[in-house]
Simulated assay, not measured.
Amino acid sequence: MSESAIEELERCDRLPELILLDINMPRMNGFEFLEIVDEKLSQAQPPVKVALLTTSSNPADARKAESFASVGWFLSKPLGRDMLDQLVSELS
């Protein structure tokens, strides 16, 4: 068992199609995570898309999210069933 999501991604034979990522996480925030794995996620075949979740209404966070190739969505929490269904349908 790995101690971090980054270690887990490194060991995966097959990456997920979608990652739900919160900006505010313990030890490493979502932006720090993306700085490490964004290139790998965006170059994977098929590319991995990230739904970045936040309670922030700061426009700077939205602009920063746009700088990562793997981020397909910048969404306000809470993530409801309708929003999740929409994400899944957009991936299909």
Score class of each variant (00 low, 15 high):
Gln86Ser: 15
Met83Lys: 15
Leu18Ser: 06
Val50Met: 02
Leu21Met: 10
Ala65Pro: 00
Met25Trp: 09
Glu32Leu: 11
Phe33Ser: 02
Glu66His: 04
Asp22Gln: 09
Ala69His: 06
Ile23Met: 09
Leu41Asp: 00
Asp85Arg: 12
Leu18Asp: 05
Arg14Leu: 07
Glu10Gln: 14
Leu9Ser: 03
Leu34Trp: 04
Thr55Val: 10
Ser42Gly: 00
Ser70Ala: 09
Phe68Leu: 01
Ser67Cys: 09
Leu52Ile: 07
Ala62Pro: 03
Gln43Ser: 15
Pro78Asp: 10
Leu75Gly: 08
Ala44Arg: 01
Gln43Glu: 14
Ile6Pro: 04
Leu53Asn: 06
Pro78Ala: 11
Val88Gln: 13
Leu53Tyr: 06
Ser89Gln: 15
Asn24Tyr: 13
Gln43Lys: 14
Thr54Leu: 05
Leu15Met: 10
Lys64Glu: 03
Leu87Ile: 06
Lys64Pro: 00
Leu9His: 03
Thr54Arg: 04
Met28Ser: 07
Asp13Thr: 01
Val37Cys: 08
Ile36Gln: 12
Pro26Met: 15
Ile6Phe: 09
Phe33Cys: 01
Ser76Trp: 06
Glu17Ile: 01
Asp13Tyr: 03
Met83Tyr: 08
Ser89Thr: 13
Ala69Glu: 08
Gln43Met: 10
Val50Trp: 04
Arg81Tyr: 13
Ser89Met: 14
Met25His: 08
Ser57Arg: 14
Leu21Pro: 01
Asp22Cys: 08
Leu79Ala: 10
Met28Gln: 11
Asn29Tyr: 07
Asp82Arg: 14
Leu75Thr: 09
Asn29Met: 06
Leu41Lys: 01
Ser89Glu: 15
Val48Ile: 00
Phe31Val: 06
Thr55Gly: 11
Ala44Tyr: 01
Ser76Tyr: 09
Gln86Cys: 12
Gln43Arg: 13
Leu20Ala: 07
Arg63Thr: 03
Ser70Pro: 00
Ala62Cys: 08
Gly72Phe: 12
Leu53Glu: 09
Lys77Val: 09
Asn58Trp: 07
Leu87Lys: 08
Val71Ser: 02
Glu32Lys: 11
Val37Tyr: 04
Glu32Trp: 09
Trp73Met: 06
Gly30Ile: 04
Ala60Met: 13
Ser2Thr: 10
Ser4Asp: 14
Phe74Ser: 00
Lys77Arg: 12
Val88Asn: 09
Phe74Asp: 02
Ala65Cys: 01
Ala65Ile: 00
Glu10Leu: 11
Glu3Lys: 05
Thr54Ala: 05
Leu79Arg: 11
Leu15Asp: 01
Arg27Pro: 03
Ile23Asp: 02
Leu20Thr: 04
Ala62Trp: 05
Asp82Cys: 10
Pro78Tyr: 13
Met1His: 14
Pro46His: 02
Arg27Trp: 13
Glu7Asn: 11
Met28Asn: 08
Arg27Tyr: 15
Glu7His: 09
Leu18His: 05
Asn58Asp: 15
Asp13Glu: 10
Glu39Asp: 13
Trp73Pro: 04
Leu91Pro: 04
Ser4Gly: 14
Ala60Lys: 12
Ala44Ser: 07
Ala44Val: 01
Leu52Met: 13
Ser57Gln: 12
